[in-house]
Nucleic acid binder design. Structure first.
Length: 1005
RNA sequence: GCGGGGGUUGCCGAGCCAGGAAAAGGCGCGGGGCUUAAGACCCCGUCCCGAAGGGGUCCGCGGGUUCAAAUCCCGCCCCCCGCACCA
């Protein structure tokens, strides 16, 4: 087999050179319809591998197919190097990281002495771009190499700058803040592969709800309660602190009570934090805080008790809420309410029931985690099992109650229910679930976690807010969080605290990561509703392959939020108006397909970086301004400018972007958004196709850890055409392919058989066409149809299956039947296969022709060559042989086979079927007849055949079975090793009855 | 949790949208032919039972619709992918 691969490699190199010499893949505008197909340029922090090979080979097969279908195809390629990984790799190589050295020598096949010199990003880019180009040439892709570029090329950077100016003009680049995972030691955001622990952790935003206390010494103190469920503010009965050290800190000018850890974390979250004093939480236990929201809602009921309560009268509900909240946040009203509550506790004033909902005590609980958010939490016993159980614990603990002087009435309160769960009969969810699980105390952490999960899950999905939540009543719990968070912030009593969902999160350097809010960050405003709407509606016009990805795209477009598009570190282009920031690397890869048109002129030297001015690009890419001005601004002559504009108008839009499925939720979305933002509608992308990954003997490949198989190695060991055919055939659409050495080798065997077979028959003189030849031609026509149809839908697996394997099987049968006129289909067969295995086809083609098969016209399906009768005859023979063999199994030494043809009910069925429009109709027609019902299975089987190939059966009617067997007697007797006698009288009566049209009775002796 | 895709005979994998053949193709395995022999190649077999082309069972699990279900409907279990600022 190795000999064959070596032979192949020679052939492949030869044709690659010939193609290159004849420049047949260099495309320029002409009269033909155009087809612009692109594939994401690879990121060069390693060698191209068989994963790239899948996406690229699909692209190349389509490009070749379309070219042969008469399109002027543009299939270009560039290289992506912007971003951080290449810098990271350079650092690792520079410091001789042993793991990196191992992976890059062992899997990426970089010679160690070369690898060790790749210590700067520039050297890495230079090395891998050369390697990539030679790998892509090695496998014979039909790329127009005149359009190659790298994303750090100066003209490219000017193109990117122009794009960002365009977006800014349209208001689509905006400023804002956003949270990132951050290492305080490295003073840098931490990427996934730089993590020691906590890769699963996501950043969650706790809502801080501020409750207000009044302290003799400190005055107003804010107790920032952190929660993931802000709606529970309506059911607060108390707040919890852990009986340990806390701090009082000035946070943006307000005095906050919070854990020490929290005060440190907040510094990274756009807060000015200044610690005033370390305090003992115990000193605050038993004090009271005011719930500003409840105060605002219930103020009417206590208005008479307030000093100047009249000021709250005559306002709307909302106005009242605002005023109350405003005064509480200033402190005085909080103080008054707390004093009022203390009085009612002493019986000096009434309204205890109302007041105790507004003013709640600070109580101690061990379950509070000071390293989670603020370390201060609200207690909502109706909906949080922890809170309920902690309160129960406290009720039993006389000592603690006495120690803190806590009045029993404060803890013996009814939980306040604020959520109804559809389809459940809970009265008080947290209490009911806690009882169900038999939870006794706070120390039963596992059970409490379980209970919490149950309650939260049910409430989140099926919960509806009750009247206790005022104006939010009737809303779904699942929808309330964002709304309420925003409302609370608007009122001035809410804030956000970012925290990891899991802990710890540890950087490679060993430091615990924090969430940092990056300020003044530049964002692409993907949440912009008009932009989104435009993208969504264009999506409906597009072709998405496979089609169910359209739904996926719809969802992802909806889900897309603003994206930070600037970074401090990495290779790339600076934001032109704010040079401290680099444009993030996915954001500079959105409309680069347009750049391929410029790249040709750049590479031939007629366009230089300094010529790429905004006015030039405005004209060339958008048709804005005029050629004169563009020429003036760029320093080019008008003809060149017009030429480039003409090229752009010819090639744009992108007709097909074929990509791996990993890019759906990022690059492909951005690709759509940016095209739609920048270009006029006629230049928006037409189609996107998505394909799956490639694994290696069942194992996932990894660039940075291995295993990995480079494209170059795959081609060197197996040949380009074997590699191509394997990868195209390995799987379809988004399902993943597996590279298995054994299977690849088996495929090489198939290809060799094909190669030798064609070589043997190709130069033979065609003979007169006989019945069997007509069968072959007919079958082949169907393969053409199937293959073309599959290719139009980018089903390469199906295409290869039909063009290669199925034709191969037919050819085998043809030869077995004694066919010796194979040459009649060979021209077309080679053409049919040329997009998949171009080198072999080119080689064979040249045995008889001087032209390039790569430029020949793809075979057309020719209805006239379809011969249903010829196919029916062969089918009949195959079926007959099978039947005879089946029967022969049961006879020890079969010598003679007697055959009896007969007719019976099947004729009738056949007749009904011929009248019927559809199989369904035929079946129900037939089933009306009671005697047929018992044979439904047989009939349906028969009918399926009839309808699968209706024409064949119309022919079947006229088929002379006796004649077919007589004509092929010699073949049949040879294949079956028996004598066949067409004497019906020798077949026993009961057997003769079994005969059906197309299925004669057989008697073996 | 949300969203998308899946679970098919020893393995990989078609079929499912448009219900109708123990279910394409490949691999593996077994047998035969060819050959001095091995390899390559060609043919046959590969769920169970069966000495006459037959019967039984089968497409994650459980129901339902239908003359007929891998395919349609309902419920359940399990697996993969994405959830971002990273290419």
């Amino acid at each position: 087999m190795q000999d064959f691969v070596q032979e192949l490699r020679v052939i492949e190199k030869k044709w690659q050179e010939e193609w290159n010499k004849a420049k047949i893949f260099e495309s320029d505008p002409d009269d033909r319809p155009k087809f612009f197909i692109t594939i994401p340029y690879p990121y060069l922090n390693g060698n191209l591998h068989v994963g790239h090979c899948r996406t690229f080979t699909i692209g190349d097969a389509v490009a070749r197919f379309k070219r042969m279908c008469g399109f002027n195809v543009l299939f270009p390629m560039g290289f992506h190097v912007t971003g951080t990984p290449i810098i990271g790799l350079a650092e690792l190589i520079a410091k001789r990281d042993p793991r990196t050295i191992e992976v890059y020598t062992k899997y990426h096949d970089v010679p160690e002495d070369v690898l060790l010199t790749l210590t700067t990003p520039e050297k890495i880019v230079e090395y891998f771009s050369k390697e990539a180009e030679s790998a892509l040439k090695d496998i014979g892709y039909s790329i127009d190499w005149r359009r190659k570029f790298t994303t750090t090329d100066p003209p490219y950077q000017r193109f990117i700058e122009w794009q960002f100016w365009k977006l800014k003009e349209k208001g689509l680049v905006v400023r804002g803040s956003h949270p990132v995972r951050y290492c305080p030691n490295d003073e840098n955001p931490v990427e996934d592969h730089d993590l020691l622990m906590g890769e699963e952790a996501t950043i969650v935003d706790f809502t801080i709800i501020k409750l207000y206390s009044w302290h003799e010494k400190f005055g107003k103190i804010v107790f920032p309660c952190a929660t993931l469920r802000p709606e529970t503010i309506f059911g607060v009965t108390n707040i919890w602190v852990k009986p340990t050290k806390y701090v009082l800190a000035k946070v943006n000018g307000e005095l906050w009570f919070l854990s020490k850890e929290a005060s440190e974390k907040l510094r990274y979250q756009e807060k000015e934090v200044e610690i005033v004093e370390e305090v003992d939480a115990n000193d605050f236990v038993g004090d009271f805080v005011v719930n500003p929201i409840l105060a605002g809602m219930l103020i009417d009921e206590i208005v008479d008790l307030l000093k100047d309560g009249k000021r709250f009268e005559g306002l709307s509900d909302d106005g009242k809420l605002r005023k109350v909240v405003e005064e509480i946040t200033k402190g005085e009203l909080a103080k008054e309410l707390i004093e009022l509550f203390k009085k009612s506790l002493n019986g000096e004033v009434g309204k205890f029931e109302v007041l105790r909902r507004i003013v709640v005590p600070i109580l101690p609980a061990e379950f509070v985690d000071t390293d989670n958010a603020t370390g201060v939490v609200m207690s909502v016993p109706a909906h949080a099992p922890y809170d309920y159980i902690a309160l129960e614990d406290l009720k039993r603990d006389e000592k603690i109650l006495r120690q803190y002087g806590i009045d029993r009435r404060l803890i013996e309160i009814e939980p306040i229910v604020l959520i109804r769960i559809e389809g459940e009969s809970y009265e008080v969810p947290a209490v009911d679930v806690a009882k169900e699980l038999g939870i006794k105390s706070q120390s039963e952490k596992d059970l409490l976690d379980k209970a919490t999960k149950i309650v939260y899950k049910k409430e989140f999905h099926k919960g509806v807010l009750l009247e206790t939540t005022g104006k939010y009543a009737g809303m779904q719990v699942s929808k309330i969080k964002d709304i309420l968070q925003k409302d609370l912030i608007d009122l001035g009593v809410g804030d956000i605290f970012y925290e990891f969902s899991e802990k710890p999160v540890v950087c490679r350097c060993g430091t615990k990561c924090v969430v940092k809010v990056v300020r003044d960050q530049w964002f692409l405003n993907y949440s912009n509703p008009e932009w989104k709407a435009k993208v969504l509606s264009w999506l409906e016009e597009m072709t998405i392959i496979p089609d169910y990805y359209k739904e996926e795209f719809r969802n992802k477009i909806e889900w897309l939020k603003d994206k930070a598009c600037a970074r401090r570190k990495g290779l790339g282009t600076r934001i032109p108006w704010d040079k401290e920031w680099l444009i993030e690397s996915l954001s500079d890869s959105t409309i680069y397909m347009a750049y391929y048109i410029l790249a040709k002129f750049i590479n031939e030297g007629s366009l230089k970086a300094e010529n790429v001015t905004p006015e030039f690009l405005d004209y060339v890419l958008l048709g804005l301004g005029d050629a004169e001005k563009a020429a003036q601004s760029s320093g080019l002559n008008v003809e060149t400018v017009e030429q480039i504009r003409k090229d752009f108008l010819y090639w744009y839009p992108v007709d097909l972007r074929s990509s791996g499925k990993d890019l759906v939720a990022n690059h492909l979305l951005f690709f759509l958004f940016h095209h739609i933002a920048i270009f006029p509608k006629e230049h928006w992308p037409r189609a996107i196709a998505v394909n799956g990954y490639v694994s290696l003997e069942g194992k996932k490949m990894s660039k940075s850890k291995g295993p990995l198989l480079t494209m170059k190695r795959a081609v060197a060991e197996n040949g380009a055409d074997v590699t191509r055919l394997y990868i195209l055939h390995a799987s379809e659409y988004d399902s993943d392919a597996d590279w298995r050495k054994k299977d690849v080798e088996a495929l090489a065997g198939h290809l060799r058989r094909f190669f030798n077979l064609v070589k043997e028959h190709y130069t033979k003189e065609p003979k007169e066409i006989d019945q069997l030849d007509r069968w072959l031609m007919s079958r082949f026509q169907k393969a053409i149809k199937e293959t073309k149809d599959a290719m139009e839908k980018l089903q390469t697996r199906r295409a290869v299956n039909s063009a290669f394997f199925e034709v191969m099987n037919d050819v085998r049968w043809y030869l077995r039947r004694g066919g010796d006129n194979l040459v009649i289909i060979l021209d077309d067969w080679l053409k049919l296969l040329a997009p998949f295995i171009p080198h072999i086809c080119e080689e064979l083609w040249h045995m008889k022709h001087d032209s390039f098969i790569s430029l020949e016209r793809y075979p057309e399906f020719d209805e006239c060559k379809v011969d249903e009768k010829a196919e029916a005859v062969e089918d009949y023979l195959k079926r007959f042989m099978e039947d005879v063999k089946e029967v022969m199994k049961f006879v020890e030494k079969p010598k003679e086979v007697y055959v009896a043809f007969a007719e019976d009910w099947k004729i009738e069925v056949l007749k009904i079927a011929e009248r019927a429009e559809s199989m369904k109709q035929a079946m129900s027609e037939i089933m009306k007849n009671e005697q047929f019902r018992t044979m439904a299975k047989d009939i349906s089987a028969f009918l399926k055949r009839v309808f699968k190939d209706r024409e064949m059966f119309t022919v079947m009617d006229e088929l002379n079975e006796r004649e077919i067997i007589e004509n092929n007697l010699e073949f049949l007797e040879r294949e079956l090793g028996v004598k066949i006698i067409l004497d019906e009288s020798k077949v026993p009566e009961e057997k003769r009855k079994l005969a059906m049209p197309g299925k004669p009775a057989i008697y073996v002796v």
